[in-house]
Computed example of a mutant assay.
Amino acid sequence: MILKKLFFSSRLILLVFFLSFCAKEESKEQRDTPRIVAFEVNPKKEQVDFYWKNAQGQIYGNAKNLKTQLQKENKKLVFAMNGGMYKKDQSPLGLYIENEKIVSSLVTREKAYGNFYLQPNGVFYINKENNPVICTTKAFKSTKNVKYATQSGPMLVIDGKLHNKFTKGSKSVHIRNGVGVLPNGNLLFAMSKERINFYDFASFFKENGCKNALYLDGFVSRTYLPSKNYKQEDGNFGVMIGVVKTN
């Protein structure tokens, strides 16, 4: 009888553990809303890379070109999104670091036209230990130990609070994409499925527990995420952010 009870208890514990594990895994898929498509990634376990130009110096520009190049390297593009604002020549606007190399310097100018300069703006970076960080431009201290970085603006969430320039019910709506850091240390990428204002878009990150989140770009934004039937491969961007698997 005692053995039967122990056997039953062990099976019950295993069942609870299994269901708990499944719930955690499934939660990645439940972050989507009717207005927003989201993708959660663990940069400690999954390969997150930033891309601008290929080995021949050609700008990737969009997910289609990036996917084609990666296929030649026996790699699979799991996810891609435009990763920040850019100039007319598609060069990064603000700080850009790729594979520890500083391609474009940090912009500290505060007053100018456009969302990039809506203060505070910020920096999204991944260090050499694959820890992701999002901080304001003023809080960004050093490029040492940084593997990837992109600067953009405005910040969406700052220390758990929405950007103070955002207005609830604002009529200024566009397609928008951004990135936040979740309480578990994972990255949360998101793009609106429809035009949305800054307040509602930033609220999505705050409601998911992101203490800091950064706006990446606006109406031109595209997301490549075949696992959710999003295959937007067009565009003509500067920096691209991708999650890659080796075949």
Results as ranks from 00 to 15, higher is better:
residue 28 K to F: 12
residue 230 Y to L: 08
residue 71 Q to Y: 03
residue 121 N to K: 12
residue 192 S to A: 12
residue 219 F to W: 02
residue 30 Q to M: 13
residue 195 R to L: 05
residue 130 N to E: 07
residue 166 F to Q: 01
residue 145 N to F: 10
residue 239 V to K: 05
residue 247 N to R: 14
residue 111 K to W: 13
residue 207 E to L: 05
residue 215 Y to H: 11
residue 119 Q to F: 14
residue 142 S to M: 06
residue 48 V to K: 11
residue 60 Y to T: 07
residue 217 D to T: 13
residue 87 K to Y: 00
residue 101 K to C: 01
residue 212 N to I: 05
residue 202 A to L: 11
residue 85 M to I: 15
residue 224 Y to C: 10
residue 126 I to R: 10
residue 210 C to K: 12
residue 45 K to T: 14
residue 2 I to Q: 07
residue 188 L to G: 06
residue 56 Q to N: 14
residue 145 N to V: 03
residue 180 G to V: 12
residue 163 H to F: 14
residue 184 N to I: 13
residue 61 G to N: 02
residue 148 Y to C: 00
residue 93 L to K: 10
residue 206 K to W: 04
residue 219 F to Y: 05
residue 211 K to Y: 00
residue 102 I to T: 15
residue 58 Q to R: 10
residue 129 E to M: 02
residue 79 F to Y: 15
residue 180 G to C: 11
residue 139 A to Y: 02
residue 143 T to D: 12
residue 148 Y to I: 01
residue 24 K to P: 00
residue 114 G to C: 08
residue 173 V to S: 03
residue 200 D to K: 08
residue 12 L to W: 10
residue 25 E to D: 14
residue 124 F to K: 05
residue 25 E to G: 15
residue 245 K to S: 14
residue 56 Q to C: 08
residue 198 F to H: 08
residue 237 F to E: 00
residue 34 P to Y: 03
residue 145 N to D: 12
residue 6 L to P: 05
residue 125 Y to M: 03
residue 112 A to K: 06
residue 239 V to Y: 03
residue 168 K to V: 15
residue 8 F to R: 12
residue 131 N to W: 03
residue 145 N to M: 03
residue 200 D to S: 05
residue 23 A to E: 14
residue 228 K to R: 14
residue 98 E to H: 08
residue 231 K to Y: 04
residue 237 F to G: 00
residue 195 R to D: 12
residue 241 I to F: 09
residue 222 R to D: 04
residue 195 R to K: 15
residue 142 S to F: 08
residue 32 D to T: 11
residue 38 A to C: 12
residue 38 A to I: 02
residue 236 N to K: 15
residue 37 V to Q: 06
residue 14 L to P: 00
residue 74 N to L: 09
residue 235 G to P: 12
residue 78 V to R: 10
residue 129 E to G: 02
residue 95 L to E: 05
residue 246 T to L: 00
